[in-house]
Design a protein around this nucleic acid. Structure first.
Length: 873
RNA sequence: GGGUACAUAGCUCAGCUGGUUAGAGCACUUCGUUUACACCGAAGGGGUCCAGGGUUCGAAUCCUUGUGUACCCACCA
């Protein structure tokens, strides 16, 4: 073994060995028939780009869960895949083609364009999959899926036609968010807002209209069919219900004055022109008031025919002309600058144009007999409310609930080419919906494709063979692996994705898709900024892995973070974990070196020394606590405990003892601890642990070994062990005191220092351990254990419970006195505080018994210490 | 406008249902090359737990108000 662990030398090789072992696939694991299954689907990364640190965090967390459960003997399955990310991917490719050749997708035509997108997607996918592999992900590659591959297409068509036949999917006209650049609709949550300054125009439609309205978009007023006012607004009360026919900048309008509570009396003139076709809010108003809808703006963002001289002009031009016209006619009353939020497309940042259009929808309110006459919305709310699905951290349940409750029907059609083509065919007035095209001639398929979340919403079961083996669930994969156990993803897509998965699984399988949703935070840069390519502040996982190794990168993503909270990451942090990985490597190197080929079989607890018992006790506690932490998604806590044990207890203390305490079972104990510590660490840092496992000559894969169980803490021997733990802890404190004393008194390291440990009654146990003290970097050259007072004349330097340590050597009396004074002061403060506490009757009567006991014990200890210190002065 | 979270050492954060003298890592200071490891070892300094008020025998922890920060949702005519 090399002195320094070099990840690059091992990782690739180990990953290949894991893959060829076949153990990533649970079907190859040697498990009892009734082993519980544990399934996670990897949130499929978009094929738009290579992975970033956020993905690495996903992989680190999920692989941790998967490896932990695999070691615990679960039938563990983790399914890989990628997402075609319809609009996003199409956009990337369109932009690229345009940049390279100046051509649009329409120039290429549907087939040619799709070829280009597919080859791009395939390229990116290859990169992504390699990245995932280099992160050490133990995914079952035999089940690799793509949201747009053949099996998923089949599943999507089946889902669509099932939903259609149950009346959940319907076609309707509605005002939708339309991106004129992408030429597609956007879901509500795909719309982003940008703060900007806008001009608010206040004007009268014509001299025939009694009052003025305010708008930022005069051009849409060509399609107004009503003017809305607040019913409480005295100024306009008398007009409510009246209809005005008039000419607005050369276009005839028929306007009805209506009352609506949503109108703010204090904004503008308190009156608002209602444009049902080009505003979502207005459209809703129009629905309830039965207003006519006039379409003004086309899909290209231009004024439609029939609007006088404005027809054919784009929105901006038309606006300017109308403003000029209004001013010319003297109708403009005011133009002011206001702060305004512009709706923009989340992909291309173009301003959104609300437009009425024929679209396909998923009804979230339709009552379904298969769900006990509840709607998808109701059922999806119910499963989270009654904790069938738990969300970690819990606070996100509220966000889910709020969002779900306000959910409208989901528009699933998109006017783009890359994606699942809608399985609907038209022939004149007829409509056919099915999994395959009708046989007869003359049917034309819908041009649109489906929202990307429609296919990713089916991810938990479309990856498990649905619908093929649905009929025969008893033997199918779905029966074994669905519902999955955990969905682990970023909190930002709880609405976009998580909610859709829940609804779709409820619809088609009448069961939840997963039992727990674990949400991780975003990975930010060291200044707390989002990592982004344009800002160039991102940390590339592949670069980091090349520099520090996968295990260090994973540790830095797992430790020091809590669910749902963002994580600031910088290279310094990763470097510190690199140091730790190397530490573990060297610990192991040492142990392997001293242990040789000894096996574990001949550990005899009866031969244990105090330090053996102590390390076993601490280690068993560690096993229990780490398991508990992992079961409760406290990865960071588990990692910190492991690091603490590894570095402080094992390396700095037990191994040091083992070098000098020759008798007993040290080698066997070291071997035992190492073997099981590797198992505990494996889910966190799979590569180095597996590498050590192999280097130590162990057979088989650590990956499929068994999770350790605490074996010593049992009622019969617990007291015995506890006694040893106490002795060792005490000894540890003594040594700390000696070190302190040396350090504070600036004892010349070259000078020989003798010490005496004076134990009142624990002489026997201490004798063995005391031998160690002088070896343990204390700078003590000789040390004696005695029954009574110090035979050698020295200064008392350390007191701990019933042990006193005397150092003989160069001692600075002044400093020593200072130190003792300080300590006395401190103790007196503590004692008086505790005294006051204990004399408080309410504390004694109301605080728990063990708390009071602890306080009393503390007080006693301090008093003894104090009196000893005082004797010295 | 509504909501959620966060505010603890110079920095990044732990601190579960209130209960030892509030912790860790990094950074810093001092000391040390002792054959697993200098990607190391030892010791140390550093905190009115954002502010005010309240509940309690007891508050970093619970309630309330305020301030600051981040994010989410809605509206923006």
């Amino acid at each position: 073994m090399e002195k320094v662990y070099e990840p690059n030398k091992y990782e690739k090789d180990i990953y290949e060995k894991w893959m060829s072992s076949g153990y990533f696939n649970p079907d190859n694991l040697d498990l009892p028939e009734d082993a519980l299954s544990y399934t996670i689907v990897l949130p499929p990364p978009n094929v738009t780009d290579k992975l970033h640190m956020g993905h690495a965090s996903t992989v680190a967390i999920e692989d941790l869960l998967i490896r932990y459960h695999r070691l615990k003997g679960y039938r563990t399955l983790w399914i890989p895949g990628t997402d075609h990310a319809a609009i996003a991917t199409q956009n990337v490719v369109e932009k690229r083609i345009y940049k390279e050749s100046g051509k649009t997708r329409h120039d290429l035509g549907r087939d040619k364009f799709l070829q280009e997108v597919n080859s791009f997607a395939l390229d990116t996918q290859t990169t992504i999959l390699n990245q995932i592999k280099s992160l050490g992900a133990s995914l079952d590659w035999s089940r690799l899926a793509f949201t747009l591959d053949e099996p998923r297409q089949k599943a999507v068509r089946k889902m669509f036609s099932d939903m259609y036949s149950q009346g959940v999917i319907y076609r309707g006209e509605r005002v939708v968010n339309w991106c004129p650049r992408c030429q597609s609709t956007l879901a509500d949550d795909e719309v982003e807002y940008k703060g900007q300054k806008a001009k608010l125009y206040t004007f009268k439609y014509s001299v025939d209209f009694p009052f003025a309205i305010s708008t930022t978009r005069p051009e849409t007023k060509l399609g107004d069919t009503a003017v809305a006012v607040n019913p409480k607004d005295e100024r306009y009360k008398k007009y409510i219900g009246q209809t005005f026919e008039l000419e607005f900048v050369g276009v005839k309008l028929k306007l009805k004055v209506i009352a609506d509570n949503h109108v703010d009396k204090d904004f503008g003139t308190g009156a608002l022109g209602v444009t049902p076709a080009h505003s979502l809010a207005d459209w809703q108003m129009a629905q309830s008031q039965n207003l006519e809808m006039i379409k003004v703006i086309s899909e290209e963002g231009k004024i439609r025919d029939g609007f006088f001289k404005y027809s054919g002009k784009n929105v901006k031009e038309a606006r300017e002309e109308i403003v000029i016209e209004l001013e010319k006619q003297g109708l403009m009353e005011k133009v002011e600058e206001i702060d305004n939020n512009l709706s923009i497309c989340y992909r291309c940042d173009s301003p959104i144009e609300p437009l009425p259009s024929k679209q396909w929808f998923v009804s979230v309110d339709k009552k379904l007999p298969s769900l006990g006459n509840k709607s998808l919305k109701e059922k999806a709310l119910e499963v989270v409310a009654n904790k069938d699905i738990k969300i970690v951290p819990e606070r996100f349940e509220k966000r889910y609930k709020d969002w779900m409750e306000n959910l409208h029907d989901w528009c699933i059609s998109r006017q783009i080419w890359f994606g699942h083509r809608i399985p609907v065919w038209y022939k004149e007035e007829e409509v056919y919906v099915g999994e395959t095209a009708p046989k007869e001639e003359g049917w034309i398929q819908d041009e649109d494709t489906l929202d990307t979340w429609f296919s990713s919403g089916m991810w938990t079961f479309s990856t498990l063979g649905w619908p093929d083996n649905f009929e025969n669930r008893k033997t199918g994969q779905l029966e074994k692996y669905h519902p999955t156990q955990v969905l682990e993803t970023g909190y930002e897509i709880i609405t976009l994705w998580v909610s859709r998965m829940i609804m779709m699984s409820l619809f088609s399988l009448q069961e939840i898709p997963f039992e727990t949703v674990y949400l991780h935070g975003m990975v930010l840069d060291k200044n707390g900024k989002k990592m982004s390519k344009s800002k160039g502040n991102g940390i590339d996982p592949i670069e980091v892995i090349a520099k520090f190794g996968t295990d260090s990168a994973r540790l830095s993503l797992l430790i020091g973070t809590t669910p749902g909270n963002d994580l600031r990451l910088d290279e310094e942090k990763i470097a510190s974990y690199r140091n730790f990985v190397n530490k573990l490597w060297n610990i192991s190197r040492y142990i392997i070196d001293v242990v040789g080929s000894d096996d574990l079989a001949n550990i005899d607890f009866k031969k244990f020394s105090n330090s053996d018992k102590w390390i076993f006790y601490v280690f068993d506690k560690l096993i229990i606590e780490v398991s508990e932490d992992l079961d409760n998604y406290r990865f960071s806590a588990a990692g910190e405990k492991l690091r603490d044990f590894t570095w402080n207890d094992l390396a700095d203390w037990y191994i040091e003892i083992s070098k000098f305490e020759k008798a007993g079972q040290k080698r066997e104990v070291l071997n035992y601890i190492l073997e099981n510590l590797l198992k505990l660490w494996h889910p966190f840092m799979p590569f180095v642990t597996e590498a050590i496992w192999q280097e130590s000559g162990r057979t088989g894969f650590l990956m499929v070994n068994a999770w350790p169980i605490a074996k010593l803490i049992s009622p019969e021997n617990i007291d015995d062990f506890k006694e040893s733990v106490k002795t060792v802890e005490r000894l540890r404190n003594v040594i700390v005191k000696i070190r302190e004393a040396r350090s504070e008194n600036k004892v010349d390291p070259a000078k020989k220092v003798e010490a005496v440990i004076y134990a009142h009654d624990k002489l026997k146990e201490l004798e063995k351990e005391a031998e160690l003290v002088k070896s343990l970097r204390t700078g003590i050259s000789s040390l004696h254990v005695q029954k009574s007072g110090p035979a050698l004349k020295g200064e008392i330097k350390a007191v701990f419970e019933d042990i006193e340590v005397y150092l003989i050597g160069a001692i600075d009396r002044e400093k020593e006195k200072e130190r003792i004074d300080k300590e006395i002061n401190n103790l007196e403060k503590l004692i008086s505080n505790t005294d006051r506490k204990l004399s408080n009757k309410e504390f004694v009567s109301k605080a728990p018994v063990n708390v009071v006991e602890a306080e009393k014990n503390k007080l006693e200890t301090w008093k003894t210490e104090l009196s000893k210190l005082k004797e010295q002065i």
